[in-house]
């Protein structure tokens, strides 16, 4: 059975336990994904993986695969799969056999207690060191003029240069982040929904990669 899937973040909400406790959950649309290509030792790739496609690439009128290069179209046509919006490669475990065109659903997470979710965080633009690197702020009063600055960046003699990797202001966000070990609260196979406890990276509607947690 595969351990990874492509999904989409829907929204955060809350569900109730029988005891009256609130569980903060994120609802994920996990799959269904179609296998676009299978790579094994026998094929020229030389390693085991499958290429999964998620969400049909449709225009508002419902035409499939518009604005797609011939090469891309050909790739989907070869495996007899409708053109997909997102294509990602996931490892194919030993003993699992899939062929192109097969559908993988959220049911692969039915017996798993925790998942890891990879996504792209919200972009925050150019940020100072306090937001970006959790620096602390200087005093606002008592004659202080050191408010939100980065402070000293190095020594004067001896080193006399700024070390590489020094935390500085700059672009923050829009980076790939994996949130590890999120508890699976509910799996809804009919609607391909996965409820995980807590937050996942990125805004609502962003694409995610969901895998069975490597920590459990």
């Amino acid at each position: 059975m595969l351990t990874e899937l492509i999904g989409k973040k829907l929204q955060m909400t809350q569900v109730w336990k029988e005891s009256g406790e609130i569980v903060p959950v994120t609802v994920l649309q996990a799959g269904p994904c179609q296998v676009v290509q299978v790579k094994t030792e026998e094929t020229k790739d030389g390693y085991r993986a499958v290429q999964l496609g998620f969400e049909d690439k449709k225009t508002s009128k419902g035409t499939l695969g518009k604005n797609m290069s011939k090469a891309e179209k050909g790739h989907f046509a070869k495996s007899k799969v409708d053109p997909k919006r997102l294509v990602q490669e996931v490892p194919l475990p030993e003993g699992t056999s899939l062929k192109s065109g097969d559908t993988v659903t959220v049911e692969i997470f039915k017996e798993c207690s925790h998942v890891d979710v990879t996504g792209t965080t919200k972009g925050r633009g150019f940020q100072g060191v306090i937001k970006r690197h959790d620096f602390s702020r200087g005093p606002k009063s008592h004659g202080s003029k050191h408010y939100r600055g980065p402070g000293s960046t190095g020594q004067h003699q001896g080193m006399s240069k700024v070390r590489k990797g020094k935390h500085m202001p700059g672009h923050y966000g829009s980076e790939q982040v994996t949130t590890m070990h999120l508890e699976v609260v509910k799996v809804e196979a009919e609607r391909n929904l996965l409820y995980v406890k807590g937050a996942v990276p990125g805004p609502s509607g962003s694409y995610l990669k969901i895998r069975k947690s490597i920590l459990s």
């Binding site: 829907l10 929204q11 909400t13 809350q14 109730w16 609802v27 609607r191």
Partner: peptide, 14 residues
């Protein structure tokens, strides 16, 4: 997001 509102309705059990 229509799906989300229906999910929230289902969880509103009282």
């Amino acid at each position: 997001m229509q799906l989300m509102s229906s999910i929230e309705k289902e969880n509103a059990k009282n």
